[in-house]
Every structure is written in C-alpha cells, then in structure tokens.
Nucleic acid binder design. Structure first.
Lengths: 110, 110
DNA sequence: TCGTTTGATTGCAATATTACGATTAACGAT
DNA sequence: ATCGTTAATCGTAATATTGCAATCAAACGA
C-alpha cells in the first residue's frame, strides 16, 4: 500500500516519527551537521557543500523545515537557514530518557 | 530516481541516517516505546499491541533489527525482542552534543 | 529596464516503502 | 506422524521518496 497508518498511533508517536524520518537521510544529516559547524548560519551555500543538485537540496531543506528542524529567513536575494533549537531539545530529551529507562531495568534477556 | 546517493556522504553520516530512518515510522516508534515500558522483553506479542497485521509487524521488526536498534533471540517457538542499548547510547550522545553545540553558539539570526 | 543571481517549483523517471493475504518453516504437544 | 502456535517470507498493489533538468519568481545592481 505504501500508506502509513498514522491514525492508529498517538499524536506524540507520529510527531516523533516525523522528526526522525526527516533526519533519516544522509543528505539531511549532512545539512544539519553543516549548520551546526558554521558560526553564521550560512544561508544558501549549503548547496555548494553538498554533492547534489540545487533542486534536490532545496527539496531536502523543505522537508527539514516542514518537520520543524530548521528555520529559514529571507535576506534580500538569499535565504538564511538555521537549526531550530526546540527540535534538538525534544530529541535530546527523548533519547536521554529512553537510555536511562533502558539502563534502569537491567533486563537479563538477549 | 529514488536512489539515495550514500557514496557521497561519510560513513558516520550514513550510519546516523540509517538509525534515524529506522525510527522514522510511528509503528516502529510504538514498538520501541513498548519495549521500553515492559519489564521482561515481551517477545512476540508486540504484534497484538499494534494495529497492524502480523507480516507488517514482522517487517518493521526486521528493519529495526537490521539497523541495530533491537536484538532478537529465539526461545523455542517464540522470539524475544529487546532494545540494543548501544544504539540508544549513540543517539543520545549525538543529540546531546548537537544541542550543546547549538546552545553555545548563540547565533543571532532566524 | 534589463540582465544576473538566488532559490523555489514543476514534471518526470527510477526506486523504495508500506501493508497485507497467502504461504511456509520451526517448534512443542498430543 | 499430525496438529496447533508462532513468526518469517513471498508476492503484489498502492503510495512515497529521491534526484534532476527545466523553468519560474523575486530581488538586486548596472
């Protein structure tokens, strides 16, 4: 079918999956790592950093933006993209909690 | 094309993307949240917890396993699945570092 | 105004994912 | 051996994603 049954899962589960899915592509990982590295938020020369054509990069940026991982602001003729701290707070907390939960239950199996 | 150009990215970026992509689906988020919640590692009744058919769940479990997020061990006629701590350590560290990097650079844009 | 630059959008082909019915494989019990 | 249970696999249909050439739109400078 190819159609994810989102209606059967909780709002939170769908939201979490959306964030993670948006980051689940090497090009998009490369984009956020680049945005983390540079001081100023480099705007559109992300394209020249990546081994992909401009429309492809634009599409990846759109997905990251619609997932709430990056923000973009227009600056004259170019666009400034930078990371949205809230998304990283949320993901950091999610995995941090998961890890401590996991460590606290010292399961004997597997 | 539908063909991800993994050869142009670093090993680490590809690996990170693989982990995140594996978690980028509400059913798989639900699976790991269930495995986090239960004390014993519940084995195969994950199927009855999810609103999906058995082959579908089996396929999701396979993806989680091949990404290194869960481990499975056969117990007679049933299979015991549980979370792989290493994956969560890695992801927790990844986002924790990203967040502190992000907070330390107090960018003024966006 | 006109050209240039920047970045989004469109349209399309190739491939991947999602979901499930049907089947199969492996095991334990009778 | 046969049966029931559990879970993987096969096959297939529907849909989504990836990537890019071509094009478009907006903003700037000459």
């Amino acid at each position: 079918m190819g159609l994810t049954k989102t209606e059967f899962f909780t709002e939170r589960q769908n939201k979490t999956a959306m964030l993670l899915k948006a980051l689940g592509h090497p090009a998009r990982v490369a984009i956020i790592e680049h945005l983390l590295k540079v001081k100023s938020c480099v705007c559109g020369d992300i394209v020249s950093e990546l081994p992909l054509a401009q429309p492809t990069v634009s599409q990846h940026l759109k997905e990251l933006k619609s997932a709430g991982i990056i923000k973009g602001s227009v600056e004259g003729t170019s666009v400034c993209y930078c990371l949205d701290e809230k998304a990283f707070e949320s993901l950091s907390a999610y995995f941090s909690h998961a890890l401590t939960d996991l460590q606290n239950k010292n399961s004997t199996c597997c």
